[in-house]
Simulated scan of single mutants.
Amino acid sequence: MTEPSAAVAPPQHPQGGLVGPALQPTRDLGATLPDLLDALLDKGVYLDLDLIVTVAGIPLIGVNLRAAVAGVETMLEHGMMRGWDEQTRAWVRESLARNVPLSADEEVVARMPGGHRRDAPPGDWRPGTVYLTSRRLLVWRADPREMLWQAALEDIIGIDLRTERSVGGEDRDRLAVTTRAETALLSVAAPGRLMALLREHGPDAPTHAPELRAQVWYLEERRGAPAWRGGTGTLGPGGLTWQGAGDVSPAVRAREIRTVQVRRARTPVGRQVLLVSADEGTVRLATRDAAWARALTSSVHEHSGGDPCH
């Protein structure tokens, strides 16, 4: 026989202090299992209860439980599990370094199955794993251990997709990488994604310091209802980007801002929403940093030469 008794208390971080707005309790009697999973991964669940297990009226086991359960991304946004995240990333780097010849300061940005076509006869495809790191693009074969092809990012001067007919008669997209010495043809599982990452991290990526970087919330469209996500907003000569904790690449990228509007609405950090319009679409942002809105407005001035719309 179990006799649970739950203590009602304001939601708090397990290490003390109130939890953020995204972890505030909600109640929906019509919620389904998918809705529960969405809430668990997005907003999270905070448990504060006392559980007593009795047998024949005699209390035998007492459990005092206080826990926050949420998706890893939500935990990171609220400052939880950061030590675990850093340790996990370090373990992944060390694990890769044991199998792939990486430098001490070299980090893997992406990896995917692929191969390299050898120019020398017989001109065959050599399968392996394609790695994009912070310094190189390489194709590595684990067994037997061999570097099939590699190029420093600073030596890459062109990337393009080429469609070729495979042996089986199917059209396949290949990634053509032009360096200062040659043009190499790579086969990868997701050539479009790798090309986008190369353009983001390659020699054409902005290398100067950003004008402004701050903690910014982004209203992301999701199934059922939009949800606020915390992350890092960056505004510089290359435009506006926003990236959530744990994201591989920015979820928002606006190269040229057209207008900035301020609307009154409830956000995790107040009652002000910034509507930023660009060629890529309109995004809704919120931040406590007052300089952020001013910087966005200045960016509109620079591109349009006129007054922005408020």
Results as ranks from 00 to 15, higher is better:
W84I: 06
I58T: 06
S103V: 04
A104W: 06
G79L: 02
R98Y: 09
I61G: 07
A67C: 12
V109P: 02
P113G: 13
M112F: 13
G79K: 06
V109Q: 06
G79T: 05
M81H: 10
G57N: 07
R82T: 14
E86C: 05
A68G: 06
P59Y: 11
E107K: 07
T74G: 07
T74A: 08
D50T: 05
E106R: 01
R98I: 02
R89T: 00
W91M: 10
A90M: 10
A67G: 09
G114F: 03
M75Y: 03
Q87G: 12
S103K: 15
P113K: 07
I58K: 15
M75I: 00
E107W: 07
T74F: 02
M80I: 08
T54D: 13
L96W: 09
S95P: 01
N64V: 05
G83Q: 12
R98K: 14
E106H: 03
A67M: 05
G115T: 02
N99K: 11
R89C: 00
P113L: 13
S95F: 08
R82C: 04
E94N: 10
A56F: 09
E86N: 07
D85P: 00
G62R: 09
E86Q: 15
G57P: 03
L96I: 00
S103M: 15
V108Y: 10
S103L: 14
P101D: 07
V69M: 06
A110R: 07
T74R: 15
R93L: 12
L51P: 00
N99R: 08
L76E: 09
D105F: 14
V109H: 13
